[in-house]
């Protein structure tokens, strides 16, 4: 359990891994915008090409990326079916007398929808979850949102909570396993019986887990006080995030991509979304 990294972070040395996490948050946002800018077949082709380039740049194995798409297959299938059957257009593909009518526009819509969802998931994944540790993301969000501090949004406090949660996830996972083993050794059974019996069987795990989590929380609070924690005011940072040339280059590249996609929309080869 200890050895499993939570989240989807894939450790590697790549251009994308090295980007400033704030850049990556912004890039992910730009990229989402890009997927919505596409309207024509040509611009969608360019978008798909760009996501392929990103996959190559990030050095993340293709099987990992495909695996991350598995949970959303149902959503993709469902929305594309709705698109296929519900879109009305001019080019009817099914015979006139069929109850179900499928139009060419519906098929195109479905295809574009599938591409859009997949590129969106893969693209944001590459910028955020695959190449950025959760803790770096937290840092990035804290710094990006820091202007909100002026209107009394407790940005630092949320970031601190997030950091502590991330720090304790492995500890508590291990602890849960330990407690489960201890209760199993006393004959507790978590796998058989009715739903109610199973829910009841969780009490011997949850009570000790909560007790221990509270004790840990008290200890940690004392330890933080001992280390002079007093909120975000007047704090300095060991690792200050700094934009480097590559960050600006990447942002420029993605903005250029967006512009290109808009231009390509006017290229009337194939189907163009209305």
């Amino acid at each position: 359990m200890k050895s499993v990294t939570f989240g989807q972070y894939y450790p590697a040395e790549s251009l994308i891994h090295r980007l400033d996490p704030r850049t990556k948050v912004l890039l992910a946002l730009f990229y989402i915008v890009c997927t919505f800018l596409c309207k024509s077949l040509v611009s969608f082709a360019a978008l798909v090409a760009s996501v392929c380039v990103l996959v190559l740049l990030s050095r993340i194995p293709m099987r990992l990326i495909l695996r991350s798409l598995r949970p959303i297959l149902f959503i993709i299938a469902f929305t594309s079916l709705i698109n296929v059957f519900m879109t009305k257009g001019e080019h009817l593909l099914t015979p006139e007398n069929w109850a179900v009518k499928i139009y060419a526009e519906g098929l195109w819509n479905a295809l574009f929808m599938i591409l859009r969802i997949m590129v969106l998931i893969v693209g944001t994944g590459i910028f955020l979850t695959y190449t950025t540790t959760p803790i770096a993301l937290t840092d990035a969000l804290e710094q990006l949102l820091s202007p909100l501090k002026k209107i009394k949004v407790p940005v630092h406090d949320f970031a601190m909570m997030m950091t502590i949660a991330l720090r304790f996830i492995p500890t508590l996972t291990e602890e849960t396993e330990k407690i489960m083993n201890a209760q199993k050794a006393r004959g507790a059974d978590f796998t058989s019986g009715s739903l109610l019996a199973r829910a009841k069987a969780l009490v011997p795990i949850l009570v000790p887990l909560f007790v221990s989590a509270f004790n840990r929380a008290f200890d940690l609070a004392s330890a933080m006080e001992c280390r002079c924690y007093h909120g975000g005011e007047g704090r300095t940072r060991l690792n200050v995030l700094r934009y480097r040339a590559i960050d600006w280059v990447m942002m420029g590249a993605v903005i250029a991509l967006g512009v290109t996609l808009i231009l390509l929309n006017s290229c009337s080869f194939g189907f163009v979304l209305g």
């Binding site: 602890e175 330990k178 407690i179 083993n181 201890a182 209760q183 050794a185 006393r186 004959g187 009490v203 011997p204 009570v207 000790p208 007790v211 221990s212």
Partner: peptide, 15 residues
């Protein structure tokens, strides 16, 4: 039940 196991810091199992 035949092989009783007392884990390290077993007081954490009290509930």
């Amino acid at each position: 039940f035949r092989v009783g196991l007392v884990m390290q810091y077993p007081e954490y199992q009290l509930f």
